[in-house]
Simulated assay, not measured.
Amino acid sequence: MFQSNDMSLIIDAKEVDNECFVQVFHRLDKKSLLNCTLACHRFHELISNDAFWVEHARIQNISNVLPSLPWRRAAIQKNFKTNQNEEIETSNFNFNLKRMVLSRRGYSTIFPCLTTHFENTGSDIFRGVVRTDDFSIRASADGIQMERNGGVGCQPHPAVSKCFAYSFSASAMTVFIDLVNSGIDEWVLDYVRPKIRVSQKVNHRHDCSATLTFGAQLNYHETQWIREFGLRQIAENTDNKRYKSINKEWDQWTEDQWEDEVIEFDDYPSGMRHLTIMNEGKDGLFWKGFYGPKIANIQVQVILPEVPTIKSAVTDTERCNEDNVPEDENEPIRVYRLPIRRRRHMWAVPPAVAREEDDQE
């Protein structure tokens, strides 16, 4: 029953067609829509089917977050092309369209919102260290500055409205992307392994030399890069299956045109769930101010092949200790007390104390 405040209108929900409710649901915000799924079984069934989310994406003008129609049809019919002779169990290969639409990411272009942090702080300059679920910034020396209109000391570019400029000491900006929470299903990452493209624009001031390391890494868990920070960074371009990097160097008085740098993953192993993107740079002359490299327009795209094709799972040949699941910080620390005689030989306690304990025994 629906009842207005003035008691003049009472509507029985049973007399309202499902289509009327669906049209209302399509115009609700994310929080209200999720609350409706908890209201009753009828609302839950109306909102939970795939047809609702396809139409909801169309009304919200975000249909690009969904996989193409051939892929959706293949997932429903379980009719995939395979490159191997072995049979692959596909009964659980279903797209989570709800997660794609609510995240507003899915298979559309993902734009990390680094500028939001600077705008929220009310300053275009950041110094120090900050860590959120989506990014981390380690800005030393004069810090990192957000610049507008193509950047100071650079040729303007119509696609660059805001950029980030580094100073004279090495600073880093790292972006964390949870691929699963962004709407990419786990079975897609394991058995399709679509191309993952990371791109950005880079530049420098023409009156100062600069260096920049642009790297991307596919991970099992989100804290991985933090644990091995610096271990996989080298001074040369890297092209591994899970980790790739591009090193840029600009000399002083060279052309200051914005360039596109692209990293693509298309031969990575199964099990990848997170993507980490890092930019570390500094100027080459140690000048005060923001004379280092500039980056802008970081983008991530997950590109499905045109023909719905699945492949066998592939084992990670580059797996290392950092790929293991982090230990639970809340787990109690176990203390193992060695026998006194053993402790004496290990010098775990002063020799005099050990002798006194032996005498007491």
Results as ranks from 00 to 15, higher is better:
residue 119 E to F: 07
residue 119 E to Q: 13
residue 120 N to L: 14
residue 120 N to A: 09
residue 121 T to I: 06
residue 121 T to H: 14
residue 121 T to N: 15
residue 122 G to N: 11
residue 122 G to W: 08
residue 123 S to P: 00
residue 126 F to C: 08
residue 127 R to Q: 15
residue 127 R to S: 10
residue 129 V to E: 12
residue 130 V to T: 15
residue 134 D to P: 00
residue 136 S to I: 05
residue 137 I to K: 02
residue 138 R to A: 04
residue 138 R to S: 06
residue 139 A to C: 08
residue 140 S to H: 08
residue 140 S to R: 13
residue 140 S to V: 08
residue 141 A to E: 02
residue 141 A to R: 03
residue 141 A to W: 02
residue 142 D to T: 11
residue 145 Q to L: 10
residue 146 M to P: 01
residue 146 M to D: 05
residue 146 M to A: 08
residue 147 E to S: 09
residue 147 E to W: 01
residue 148 R to A: 12
residue 148 R to K: 14
residue 149 N to G: 04
residue 149 N to M: 08
residue 151 G to S: 04
residue 151 G to Q: 06
residue 151 G to T: 02
residue 151 G to Y: 01
residue 152 V to Y: 11
residue 152 V to E: 10
residue 154 C to T: 15
residue 155 Q to R: 13
residue 155 Q to M: 12
residue 156 P to A: 05
residue 159 A to H: 13
residue 159 A to Q: 15
residue 160 V to H: 03
residue 160 V to Y: 03
residue 161 S to C: 06
residue 161 S to G: 12
residue 161 S to N: 15
residue 163 C to P: 14
residue 163 C to M: 12
residue 166 Y to Q: 07
residue 166 Y to K: 04
residue 166 Y to G: 04
residue 167 S to T: 05
residue 168 F to D: 11
residue 168 F to M: 11
residue 169 S to H: 12
residue 171 S to C: 10
residue 171 S to G: 09
residue 173 M to A: 06
residue 173 M to F: 04
residue 173 M to Q: 12
residue 173 M to I: 15
residue 176 F to S: 02
residue 177 I to K: 09
residue 177 I to V: 15
residue 178 D to C: 06
residue 178 D to N: 15
residue 178 D to W: 10
residue 179 L to W: 07
residue 180 V to L: 14
residue 181 N to S: 11
residue 182 S to N: 13
residue 185 D to L: 02
residue 185 D to A: 09
residue 187 W to G: 06
residue 187 W to S: 11
